[in-house]
């Protein structure tokens, strides 16, 4: 109930914020360009049904921090956090509501990119199952990046610092996929890869396969990040 109230406020905020539309615009233009690129590159052959999710898997490193940086940091700076923490609701529901709001916004944006698939269907018969798997993957993947963003937003009062730190963190998580190129021991490389965001997307969802362990990974990341963010919000009571 309280989660729902916070969720609704966040969604209303995104819906009324020019900044949110600007980010959606940027995401759509970039994915649109890459989509066109793929069309041109694979003319007379078979286009990758996961091209847009694949592009988003990198874009989210940049956009997730921008979407989440204000979530808690702003409340802290404006002092509304004090009021939120005196409301008769568990601290977790505030964080969860905010997270779900951001995730919902993200869902709408990637939902819009599904329109591109309609365009694709007009010139070929894409493997829609493959596309759906990739979208499920990128949806969870996006949720995980947003949860990382919300943690950093909860850790600092400064939005820019929050955005920068979460960008760095996400970039490292993204990059860890390439661990094998620098780590010569394959087991170590695989462990590092298993910790990366890409490692649970590029070799499964992106090729049309939904693995339960990858879903557990992303949901686990979300769970841990939200738990930590809740604790960070709660820590405002202790100082």
């Amino acid at each position: 109930m309280s989660t729902w109230v916070v969720f609704r406020r966040e969604v209303a905020h995104y819906a009324g914020s020019p900044f949110a539309y600007l980010i959606a615009f940027a995401i759509l233009v970039l994915t649109g360009l890459l989509f066109r690129e793929e069309l041109v590159a694979t003319e007379t052959t078979i286009p990758n049904p996961a091209v847009i999710p694949n592009a988003l898997s990198f874009f989210m490193v940049v956009f997730a921090p921008l979407l989440t940086m204000r979530l808690v940091a702003e409340e802290k700076r404006e002092g509304t956090l004090e009021l939120l923490l005196t409301a008769p609701v568990p601290d977790g529901s505030i964080v969860i509501g905010k997270f779900l709001g951001a995730w919902f916004y993200y869902t709408i944006v990637i939902g819009i990119t599904l329109l591109y698939q309609i365009a694709l269907s007009s010139v070929t018969a894409p493997d829609l199952g493959h596309t759906i798997a990739a979208y499920i993957g990128i949806w969870l993947y996006g949720g995980a990046t947003l949860s990382v963003g919300i943690l950093f937003s909860a850790l600092t009062e400064n939005q820019i610092v929050a955005a920068f730190l979460s960008m760095v963190a996400l970039f490292l998580l993204w990059l860890a996929d390439l661990a094998g190129q620098v780590i010569s021991n394959i087991d170590a490389a695989r462990v590092v890869r298993a910790l990366s965001l890409q490692g649970h997307y590029s070799t499964s969802f992106a090729v049309g396969l939904v693995r339960m362990e990858d879903m557990v990974f992303f949901l686990g990341i979300i769970l841990i990040m939200i738990y930590l963010a809740t604790r960070a919000v709660e820590s405002n009571r202790w100082r």
């Binding site: 090729v207 396969l209 339960m212």
Partner: peptide
């Protein structure tokens, strides 16, 4: 190893 192969060609 619980997986769902969503590809129409059932590649996996």
């Amino acid at each position: 190893a619980v997986t769902w192969d969503l590809t129409i060609s059932q590649r996996f």
